[in-house]
Amino acid sequence: MNISQQIITIGMVVLGTMITRFLPFIIFPANKPTPAFVQYLGRTLPAAVFGMLVVYCLKNVQLLTGSHGLPELIAIGAVVALHLWKRQMLLSIAGGTAVYMLLVQLVFPAA
């Protein structure tokens, strides 16, 4: 990507973010109830989108070659275990990332 393509890409992200933040104030007058369909999406979309994002983060993991996704699997296990144990978001993220870095640097170094 050249610099103007980068600026357009970042601009799209800014635009998208601003649409999601300003739209409710433009289309829903505060004194009227929110349409049921919008409320439904508000309840159901987050879990699906975050599931999609986890898959997105792992999209380049090769299960058939290299380390077979083992470092990712172990580190995600560490994140989940830490989080269920302490329920401290930062601790889970930092701990899982540290486990992953140790694994890819020391246990499964790329050939």
């Binding site: 978001m89 993220i93 990332t97």
Partner: peptide, 22 residues
């Protein structure tokens, strides 16, 4: 220091958010 694997921070973040939602 060797930052290889630091990009996992994004995966870890979304796993935590997903788990919280779950």
């Amino acid at each position: 220091f060797n930052t290889e694997g630091l990009d996992f921070v994004m995966t870890a973040m979304f796993v935590v958010i997903f788990l919280e939602q779950w």
